[in-house]
């Protein structure tokens, strides 16, 4: 279980997170929505231990990731996977080498076994035949799918998605969402997805949380969020210009 307790974080004197509280149960999928540049990715990076909080706790099965060091932190991070906004593929490696990278570095698998596993993962994300291409030679949608395959290859228990469909056309975006959903069903991982894909996301996840003014403003099932009378939620999910959310 992931539990964020009163998380605060400032950058250059400006507080981005003002005391975030969030809970995600095992096997659950949560969509994190909210305005651009309001700290959703910052929250995600705290959960995986890339950033340290100014105060507050991030508990992963009751272990505070921000307090862990050395082997304990490494062991905890091994339970995670993350799909970054731009894919974060190693640009000097081919698609095959990118997916094989964690297997080569973190397991004792034989080369033949790695080849087989990578081929299976590529087939899973619909990219068979793209093994020898470099990230610069493939489209944005393909990059995100390679990033997903690189993440899935280690079978993590928790996967964090940072806007996995941003910048893609609606069809590819929907295809990736469907792929993530089907992977979650087969791999049964816990997931937190930062996304702006509204209303598509409501049919994809178990719960939705909205980050507003540096705190979790509302959390609930997709139905609860969609039918909420809260003016902030209403304005945001309907994309209205008039309302309590200022656009600047």
């Amino acid at each position: 279980m992931i539990e964020v307790i009163n998380l605060r974080k400032s950058f250059n004197g400006q507080e981005i997170l003002h005391g975030v509280n969030l809970k995600v149960n095992d096997g659950q999928s949560l969509a994190l929505i909210g305005g651009s540049g309001r700290g959703k990715s910052v929250l995600l990076k705290h959960i995986i231990g890339l950033l340290k909080p100014d105060s507050g706790k991030i508990l992963i099965d009751n272990e505070d990731i921000s307090k862990l060091r050395g082997r304990k932190l490494k062991r905890l991070k091994e339970r995670f996977g993350m799909v970054f906004q731009g894919g974060a593929l190693f640009d000097s490696l081919t698609v095959f080498e990118n997916i094989a990278f964690p297997l080569r570095e973190k397991t004792r698998m034989r080369a033949s076994q790695i080849r087989k596993t990578v081929s299976e993962e590529l087939a899973e994300v619909g990219l068979s035949g793209a093994e020898n291409k470099y990230p610069a030679e493939i489209s944005g949608g393909m990059k995100k799918r390679v990033a997903l395959a690189r993440c899935l290859v280690m079978s993590p228990e928790i996967i964090l998605f940072d806007e996995p469909t941003t910048g893609l056309d609606p069809l590819i975006g929907k295809a990736i969402h469907t792929m993530i959903r089907s992977c979650q069903k087969s791999y049964k991982f816990t997931s937190i997805m930062v996304t702006h894909e509204i209303p598509d996301i409501f049919s994809m996840v178990d719960r939705v949380a909205m980050l507003y003014n540096g705190v979790i403003h509302a959390e609930g099932t997709p139905e609860e969020i969609q039918t909420s009378k809260d003016p902030v939620i209403h304005q945001f999910i309907h994309g209205e210009l008039e309302g309590p959310i200022s656009i600047n």
Binding site: K45, I48, G49, L50, K74, R75, K77, E78, F80, G81, M82, F84, Q85, G86, A88, L89, F90, D91, F101, P102, E105, K106, M154
Partner: peptide, 17 residues
Amino acid sequence: GIMRITEQIDALDTMAL
């Protein structure tokens, strides 16, 4: 530097490397 801004270094970190 390019690895940093394209989050490749963060990707290494999230792989517990």
